[in-house]
Design a protein around this nucleic acid. Structure first.
Lengths: 205, 205
DNA sequence: TAGATTGTTAATCGATTAACAATC
DNA sequence: TAGATTGTTAATCGATTAACAATC
């Protein structure tokens, strides 16, 4: 059985992937040095990380970029397309539902839902905002296993509970609150004011 | 001279701050246990982290929440309001410029700029989109030291270079590319497809 | 005092990276 | 072969956390 991949490595793999996709336009092979420079990390780090993805490099030559891209996708589990639901059709939710970047990575925004009657039924890009009352049938019928929460903080935990109960296993939380969940559910939080807070500390250095 | 604060601690302080602000509605004091539960970390971690912010707790009692909030803000350098410029008035930039969360943390979106003539002059919430040609005078006149980049990937590095040259010291990059910068400039990147990529790996566990 | 909780130590754990033999 | 680069070891570094004396 393969050894478990360290979480720090998992967090870096998508970054490598992004760099490799860029690099694949210009070259077929890349050395750990080149990948390291592009991703802003140490070359030994790159080699160690790549040793987990099952791509052999060639000593004296480097790595086959297309191999790496394929294997990283495999390890991350983004070889096929995943349907995603966005809950909360405010500014942020609407912006994300149109974000081309997701599709390139194999994520398809399958539904955008909200609980505001004024918003339900409006068109956002290719999507029509659906009622959050229909969340259960949306998730089940479209086989959704990933949710993005862009509601106000007050609604976020309720939405998360509902999603989890419907079998959603991965949640990206953009609401300004910490979500609780049971085991087996992956939750990641992105909080932009927090990011600015860290940057502000840098300013006062 | 105070010891340098570990970067891992700096990354957690904004999270504590968020939790403490929530908790301050209900209570005046909090124990490391309570803060740890709210923030989802270990209680010893909380105590160690808080030992860097210069708030003494009281043994047997806990920490004074208002003290903590004040001192964490002090350490992070977000006691006063910072003007921020958003470059890129697409969906994401527009969403962020209306995001109330920033103001509560002391960040004021002072300008929203774009280089598309179709977009310049349009109204986005309280702001009028300004021309990126006027970036230099905007940054200087309004004393801006923090920038948020929400342009396409292709434009991001150019914008970053320009901002840095104008004296901006902290950049939050939401464009899907890794930015290079010299020393003394803080850059943080938020990449949502990457976050989903990590979550997708969780799905295949 | 008895109970609770801090502040801090020291052990543990995990992640990073220099270094170099293997080898293309 | 000579030069380049991998794969991996082992040392280092830093972060986490259990444990407990101090003390409110």
């Amino acid at each position: 059985m393969a050894p478990p991949i360290p979480s720090a490595t998992i967090e870096r793999l998508p970054r490598y992937l992004r760099c490799l996709i860029d690099m694949s336009l210009d070259a077929e092979r890349a050395s750990s040095d080149q990948i390291a420079a592009a991703a802003g990390v140490n070359a030994a780090q790159v080699r160690k990380d790549l040793s987990f993805v099952g791509t052999q490099g060639t000593r004296g030559v480097g790595y086959e970029i297309s191999d790496l891209i394929h294997n990283i996708r495999l390890v991350l589990g983004i070889t096929k397309s995943y349907p995603v639901v966005i809950v909360g059709a405010g500014n942020l939710g609407s912006a994300l539902s149109n974000y081309e970047g997701f599709r390139a990575w194999g994520f398809e925004i399958a539904a955008l839902v909200d609980n505001d009657p004024e918003v339900i039924g409006t068109q956002v890009g290719d999507l029509t905002v659906e009622s959050s009352r229909r969340l259960a049938s949306i998730v089940k019928k479209r086989g959704i296993r990933i949710g993005i929460i862009t509601t106000p903080a007050s609604a976020a935990q309720g939405v998360a509970d509902q999603l989890i109960q419907l079998g959603v296993k991965s949640i990206l939380n953009l609401a300004p609150t910490v979500l609780k969940s049971g085991d087996g559910v992956g939750i990641r939080r992105v909080d932009l004011p927090t990011e600015l807070g860290i940057l502000a500390h840098h300013l006062s250095r």
